[in-house]
Simulated assay, not measured.
Amino acid sequence: MALTFGKCLLRDIRIQAGYTQDQLSEALLEVCGLNVSTTLLSFYETNKRPIPSLTMRGICIILGCNEKDIYEWPI
Rank of each mutant, 00 (worst) to 15 (best):
F43H: 13
G33K: 12
S25H: 04
P52C: 08
A27I: 00
L41M: 12
P50K: 09
I62D: 04
I61A: 04
G58P: 03
S25I: 00
L29K: 11
L34P: 01
P52N: 08
L63C: 12
A27P: 03
E30G: 12
M56E: 09
C60G: 08
P50C: 11
L28Q: 02
G58V: 09
V36Q: 11
L29A: 11
C60M: 09
P50G: 12
I51A: 00
I59V: 15
T38A: 09
L24F: 04
I61C: 01
E30M: 13
E26A: 15
Y44S: 07
N35K: 12
P52W: 03
L54D: 14
G58L: 07
L28E: 03
N47M: 09
P52D: 13
L34T: 05
S25R: 00
S42M: 03
R49D: 05
G33A: 07
L24T: 00
T39N: 07
T46Q: 14
Q21P: 11
L41F: 00
L41P: 07
P52E: 10
C32M: 11
T38Y: 02
S25D: 04
F43G: 02
A27E: 10
L24C: 06
Y44N: 06
R49F: 00
K48L: 08
L28Y: 03
L54P: 10
P50N: 14
K48N: 12
E45C: 06
K48D: 11
F43V: 06
T39C: 08
R49S: 07
F43A: 11
T38I: 12
E26C: 11
Q21T: 14
C60L: 11
D22W: 08
L40Y: 04
I62Y: 03
C60N: 06
I59A: 05
L54I: 15
S37E: 05
L29S: 10
E45A: 06
T39H: 07
S53C: 12
K48S: 10
I61V: 15
E30Y: 13
N35M: 11
P52V: 10
C32Y: 01
L63S: 05
V36W: 05
C60H: 05
L54C: 14
A27W: 02
Q23R: 13
M56A: 15
T38Q: 14
T55W: 00
S42N: 11
R57M: 13
L40P: 04
R57H: 08
G58S: 14
T38M: 08
G58A: 14
E26F: 08
T46S: 15
G58W: 01
I62L: 15
S42A: 13
T46W: 07
T39E: 08
A27L: 06
R49P: 02
K48T: 02
L29C: 09
I61W: 00
Y44V: 07
R49N: 07
P50E: 14
L28A: 07
L34A: 12
L40Q: 14
A27Y: 01
Y44H: 08
L41W: 00
R57G: 11
L24N: 00
E26D: 14
T39P: 04
I59R: 03
L24P: 01
M56G: 10
G58Q: 06
S37A: 08
Q21F: 01
V31G: 03
C60S: 10
L29E: 06
R57E: 08
L28T: 01
Q21N: 10
S37M: 06
